[in-house]
Amino acid sequence: MPRLLFDANQAADNTFLDEILSGAKFASATFTSRVASNRGTKADRVERTLKISLVDENQRQMAPTVGRNWMIRKRNGHSTNARDGVTEVSALLEHEQLLAADAGNRYDEVSLSIKSESNETTTIAIDTLRDVFTYPVSDGEPSIHYYYEKVDGRLYAIAMQDGLDLNRIDPYEVHECLNASIFGH
């Protein structure tokens, strides 16, 4: 039986994503097409990839605009499939003459990579519209305090976004509770 310290659902840091989408210093659209492997496995392999860098200000703003539209639809409970995402992005790129007419029909998926003015980055697609946080790897296991310090600044912003009243968390107390409940069993 697995022991969960927290609920399995993740709280989305919408403010962080909004900060990235508010402006783009760098942006690109990557189209991919996949076919089943001829090796008999169920895994897909990429047959075709097209990456388009969005260079001028107008082009760079397309990626955050599309990303924001996808995010709004998802928040409102509307789903958009990968094919619709490809159609939406390819139509914008065709309008900017960055993609030949109907060239998007050759691809199954599209993702948008965005780097903000503050050097925050994200890559989003219709089916992976979520924030991904990565932490540096260290030699040996970092303490719980190390991980807590990474999220402490955002934790209360996320709680406020969801209307949760959150008391100050003492990382030392959490560490002692975890040692008492997990280690030794």
Rank of each mutant, 00 (worst) to 15 (best):
Thr32Pro: 01
Leu99Ala: 08
Asp102Trp: 09
Ala43Asn: 14
Val89Lys: 11
Arg48His: 04
Ala29Met: 08
Glu57Cys: 05
Glu57Tyr: 07
Ala159Lys: 12
Asp127Val: 01
Arg60Ala: 03
Leu112Tyr: 13
Thr30Tyr: 07
Glu141Arg: 15
Ala36Lys: 15
Asn38Asp: 08
His95Ser: 10
Gly77Ile: 03
Ser28Gly: 01
Ala125Phe: 09
Ser28Gln: 09
Asn76Gly: 07
Ala101His: 11
Val110Ser: 04
Glu96Lys: 12
Thr122Leu: 11
Ser111Met: 14
Ser28Ala: 06
Arg34Val: 05
Ile72Val: 14
Ser33Asn: 09
Ala157Leu: 07
Lys150Glu: 02
Ser79Asp: 06
Ser113His: 11
Ala159Phe: 10
Val46Ala: 05
Tyr148Gly: 02
Ser113Tyr: 12
Arg130His: 12
Ile52Lys: 08
Glu19Ala: 12
Phe133His: 11
Ile72Arg: 15
Ala63Trp: 07
Phe31Asp: 00
Arg68Val: 02
Ser143Phe: 08
Glu19His: 13
Pro64Tyr: 03
Thr65Gly: 06
Ser111Pro: 10
Ala43Pro: 03
Ile20Phe: 14
Glu141Leu: 12
Arg106Asn: 05
Leu129Glu: 08
Ala43Tyr: 15
Arg68Asp: 10
Val55Ile: 11
Ala91Arg: 14
Ser53Cys: 11
Lys51Asn: 13
Arg83His: 03
Leu50Thr: 05
Gly163Cys: 08
Gly104His: 13
Arg34Tyr: 06
Ala63Phe: 01
Glu120Thr: 00
Glu120Phe: 10
Met62Phe: 02
Asp108Glu: 06
Leu129Cys: 08
Glu57His: 10
Ile126His: 11
Glu19Ser: 15
Glu96Trp: 07
Lys51Cys: 08
Ala103Ile: 02
Trp70Phe: 15
Thr49Met: 13
Tyr147Ala: 02
Ile72Phe: 15
Phe31Ile: 04
Val137Tyr: 09
Thr121Asp: 03
Pro136Trp: 07
Val151Ser: 03
